[in-house]
Every structure is written in structure tokens, then in C-alpha cells.
Amino acid sequence: MAVDLEKILRPVDHPLKPFEAKYMTLASGEHMVIRQIDRDEIPDILPYLEPLLHVERDYYDVVCARIYSELLAHYRCRAQDEYVLAVQIDGELAAVVNGRQVSPDLGMSLHTIALRRGLRVGAHAFAAKMEYHIDILGHQEVLIVAESPIGFRRWMIEYQLEKRFETAHELGGVPSWALTKDLFDRARSTLVVGRRPVPPEILAKAEAKILPPSDPPTPPADLLAATRSMYDPTATALIAQRNALGGETDHA
């Protein structure tokens, strides 16, 4: 008997209520839209994420590698009950957040990656993700981990998450933290912002095309600085550099 292997490999998604797009004003005065995207738009954002694999700063490399694989798995139907929210400023991709439903009562936060820094873009995106889990999907709690110190400050400290260390998170099997509905309600007035409906012209621009980020995170200026200092403890290389500069002036 012939077997359709794809039917075995492909998980069956449960229908999830949609996340209605919202928008907010950033410190820069720009409008930022957060909206749910479906599988068809995943290939549009993967090329914008790929360069972050090489940013060895603030755990961008690890976070990017993992969210890239999660988005790809979602696109190729190898993840169950996953959703993706895209964050756009003037059409440009500013952040991506994703997660999935484990059960009708439990959500699993996967990743938050900000491609624009310094404007709470990632924090706003994370808040929208929690709003989706708690308010829209009706989850009683969401399991969360952080891979970077920035994430730890943003999630564990700002939301005062509860420990669920007896439960391994899907990301690396590490001990989980939990956002409960009660904790979310306490954070709602200070951390969760945004307005609905999104003005049609703003939403139309976001939906027309996901544009590449114009100022994405970049690798450290000198990836080898730490290594160099380790292997050049008396700064011989630095002296050589200075000697090379000797006698050369911009104004000569």
C-alpha cells in the first residue's frame, strides 16, 4: 500500500485566532506596525535575518540561527501551531517575534529578534507577542527563556516572571520562566502599548512589501580584538601600527 509520507511528517495545526494588527509611535516619532504574517511571507524575511548569523554580539548569532530554523520549519510545515508577528517601520522589517501554542492553556514563547536598536522595538514586539498569547489565544501562561542578558532584563526582570524551573523549555531544554495572566495584567499599563485599528494607509504600506532593514545590527568593529589582546599581551601589534603611521599626516 502506498504511504503519503508527507502526511506523517507534517503536523496538523490547530486553528489559532488571528492577531489583529496594531501600531504605535516610537521615540523617534515613527509609526511601527506589528502584524501577523502567514507562511507565504516567510521567504520574504529570511534573507533579512541571515546576515545576523554573523553578528557575534548580544547573542544575535544564536538567536538568529534558531529563529531562522523556526521560521523555515514553519514555512516547510515542520512545526506545529507556530505563529509569526512581523514588526515594520515605514515598511522596513524592524523585528520578528514567534511562538507557538502548546495547548489551549499554554503558550511557548520562541524568539524575539530586533533589527532596529535603541527604540524599544524588541520590547514592544515581545509585549505584542504576550498580548497574543494571553488576551487573544487565552493562554493561562506562557513559558519563556532568554538567551541574552538584554532579553533577561526585558522579560524576566521587567515582567517579574515566575520560575518554572521544573519544566524544560523547548529552546535548549533550559529551565523555563513563566508569564501568567496575572503578571501580564500587572504589566499591561506600563509595558503593553499600541492602537487599533491601524490607519489604512499605514497598514497598506506594511502589507505591500516587507522592505529590508536600513540599519541592521552589524558585527563588532574588530572581531579579533579579544583574541589579539590575548596573543599580543605587550601590544607589539599596536606599536607596529603606530610606527606604520609615523610620519604620515593628513595635512602634510
Partner: peptide, 22 residues
């Protein structure tokens, strides 16, 4: 250090200002 423009609307006047600029 900071290469991010800000506006009075974004940090003081918008409904999101208190979160942007707590």
C-alpha cells in the same frame, strides 16, 4: 554613541510616550 533621532511626540506626547520614555 546614539545614532537614533528622537522627537517630542515620541518621548513626551504620544500615547506610547510613557513606555518609550519611562
Amino acid at each position: 554613541h546614539l545614532h537614533q533621532p528622537i522627537t517630542l511626540e515620541g518621548i513626551l506626547e504620544s500615547p506610547e510616550a510613557m513606555t518609550n520614555n519611562p
